[in-house]
Structure formats: C-alpha cells, structure tokens
Simulated assay, not measured.
Amino acid sequence: MITMTRKLALLAALGLAAGAGIGYAPQTQAAQVAVGVTIGVPPPPPRYVRVPPPRVGYVWAPGYWRWDHRRHRHVWVAGYWVHARPGYRYVPEHWVHRRGGWYFRPGHWVR
C-alpha cells in the first residue's frame, strides 16, 4: 500500500517528466515596452556640442530635446555614454514628424 505522500511525490515526478518531454524553448527576444509622446510643437534645432574623446566599450549618445509637460516647453538633455553592445548599432533619441504632430522616439539598439 502506497502512502498519500508517496502518491503525491510520484504524481509530481510524472508531471515533471511529462513537462520535460514537451520540450522547453526559451524566448530569443526580450519583451519590449514602448511609451510614446506626441505633441504639436516642433523641437528646436539640436545643439551642437563637442563630443568627448572616445571611451573603449561605450557609444556616445548625443543630447536631445525632451518635452517637459509641466512647463509646456522643450528642455535640453545633455549627451551621455551608453555601454556598447557588440553586433548592434545605437539609434539616439529623436523626434519624428507624423500626422500633424511630433512623436518622440527613445534611444534604442538595432542589429
């Protein structure tokens, strides 16, 4: 006679074995979430500043205009260093004109 604990352990082991038989395929891409800002006011021209000397293993992300909804105006965000990703190209933050408004695109990596 098998005790209740042994029955549960046997059932759990069978469930794990069946799950392993199905196979496990990890996702190759992480989920991404995008939040966009669309406004009717175009951003000012970009400020041109001297880029600092290169840093090994980093990519320079230039400054950009960010919309400050509290002040109802653009504010300048200074450039910064981004840790490089081999095999990828960094696309910095920028504004795109679309359907009567301006849409902000956050910085991101592309292959």
Rank of each mutant, 00 (worst) to 15 (best):
V35A: 09
K7R: 12
M4Q: 14
W76Q: 07
V37M: 06
P92I: 04
V96K: 04
T28K: 05
T5W: 04
V110M: 08
A30K: 14
G23Y: 09
T38E: 15
W109R: 03
G21M: 14
A34G: 02
Y80H: 12
Y64K: 01
P92S: 12
A12I: 03
G40W: 02
R55F: 00
W65R: 03
R47Q: 14
Y64Q: 07
H74V: 00
R85E: 13
P45I: 02
A78S: 15
W65Q: 04
R98W: 04
P54V: 05
H108P: 03
V41H: 04
P86Y: 15
G79R: 04
R105Y: 03
W81T: 02
I22Q: 10
M4D: 14
P26M: 09
V59W: 04
A17T: 10
W67R: 11
H74R: 02
P42F: 09
R105P: 00
A12S: 02
A31N: 10
G87R: 10
T28R: 12
R105G: 00
G36I: 02
A18G: 12
P45H: 04
Y64F: 13
L11N: 05
Q29M: 08
F104D: 14
A17I: 10
R111G: 06
H108M: 05
V51L: 04
R6D: 13
T5C: 02
R89T: 13
V56K: 14
P106W: 12
E93I: 00
G36N: 07
P53F: 01
G19H: 03
A25H: 11
Y80E: 15
T5Y: 08
R98T: 08
